[in-house]
């Protein structure tokens, strides 16, 4: 039976306390360096902050998961090992990993601590998942956001570990852990540095005709009319021209966020063990609202009541939403 745990983002110590108080079953966080995939300025934890966070969370029955989910380039592996050592010393409940060398190190050094396979490992088949389970003792896989619910149900039958899926937040289009788009334009790597379309490289440029270009490292990722709201220049959410689309179109995906609240009952029935809310870069008030709403919805479903998802819909009001690949193969 699915326990339907809620796994909530903690980009800062304050967001962590907020998520814990709002009813998170577990929070996930990272250190202030390249060892995690949200290595953004102003985010993440010092070792001292993580120590306090673990104490705070554990006192309230909430687990702390440490993301070490980037890929160390050769010559820098020690940074990841030291982060694992620190996390183990501070008593985190699980490590979220992607790199095989990092997984192997933790499995050997800290066999008592749970390993979760990050979405950054891109394990999308029973065989790939079993590889990590059998070799590193992985207890849970975070599935890539590319599978339909029937496919998830089938995978569940064929693997020996728990499944975690994303249910809400930013909707990445590329297979995680296999994307170098940011490095191609900016020189900072998502896999090696934990950076994606970094704010330091963003510029909004007003053109002579009143339109606005949102640029990343000097590349125009999108252009907006005087009446349009200019969006953040994430490469895979940009508008480009192709030979058959000279007018410009969202070549990969529209700026849209994932919201699976309507599918929660189906996901629980399919055997998904834990639901992940994206957004370590989000504000405290966002975290509070989303976690509270999902807490109530999950509790309702577990108690056999109809979940009130209106609050969840309201959270993304004014934004486009998608159920992505989860609902239909046509997404592909």
């Amino acid at each position: 039976m699915s326990l339907a745990e809620l796994i909530c983002p903690a980009g800062t110590p304050a967001a962590l306390r907020t998520a814990v108080d709002a009813g998170a079953d577990a929070v996930y966080c990272g250190f202030q360096d390249a060892t995690n995939a949200r290595n953004f300025p102003g985010l993440n934890f010092t070792p001292d902050e993580l120590a306090e966070a673990v104490t705070y969370a554990h006192a309230r029955g909430t687990k702390v998961l440490l993301a070490l989910n980037t890929y160390p380039p050769a010559g820098k592996v020690d940074l990841w090992r030291h982060a694992a050592d620190t996390g183990a010393r501070l008593g985190v409940d699980a490590f979220i990993v992607a790199d095989m060398g990092v997984a192997d190190y933790i499995a050997r050094m800290y066999p008592g601590v749970r390993l979760h396979l990050s979405v950054q490992a891109a394990a999308s088949s029973p065989e790939a998942i079993r590889y990590y389970c059998e070799n590193f003792g992985v207890k849970r896989v975070v599935l890539p956001r590319i599978l339909t619910i029937p496919e998830i149900r089938q995978i569940r039958r064929e693997i020996p570990c728990e499944i975690e899926t994303f249910i809400f937040g930013n909707h990445g289009l590329m297979v995680e852990g296999r994307c170098s788009l940011t490095n191609y334009l900016t020189g900072q790597s998502t896999n090696m540095d934990g950076v994606c379309s970094p704010a330091s490289d963003v510029e909004y440029v007003r053109d002579a005709d009143g339109s606005m270009s949102s640029q990343l490292a000097g590349f125009t990722i999108d252009r907006f009319g005087p009446e349009e709201k200019a969006g953040y220049p994430t490469i895979c959410k940009g508008r480009y021209a192709a030979p058959h689309r000279p007018e410009g179109y969202y070549a990969f995906e529209e700026p849209i966020s994932l919201n699976l609240s309507r599918l929660l009952p189906d996901l629980i029935e399919a055997g998904v063990h834990a639901f992940k809310i994206e957004g370590r870069q989000r504000s405290k008030s966002y975290v509070r609202g989303v976690v509270r709403a999902f807490r109530a919805a999950v509790d309702d479903i577990k108690a056999g009541r109809e979940a009130n998802i209106a609050d969840l819909i309201a959270l993304t009001e004014g934004q486009k939403q998608t159920q992505g690949a989860f609902e239909t193969k046509k997404w592909r």
């Binding site: 999308s124 890539p144 590319i146 599978l147 289009l173 590329m174 297979v175 296999r178 994307c179 170098s180 788009l181 191609y184 895979c236 192709a242 058959h244 689309r245 179109y249 070549a251 990969f252 995906e253 690949a325 193969k329 046509k330 997404w331 592909r332």
Partner: peptide, 21 residues
Amino acid sequence: RASLAVSARCYHARAHGRTKD
């Protein structure tokens, strides 16, 4: 050319108003 990303979605099909299937 360097491979920069893979996806479950087919962007060739998308450019032509189709899906992968």
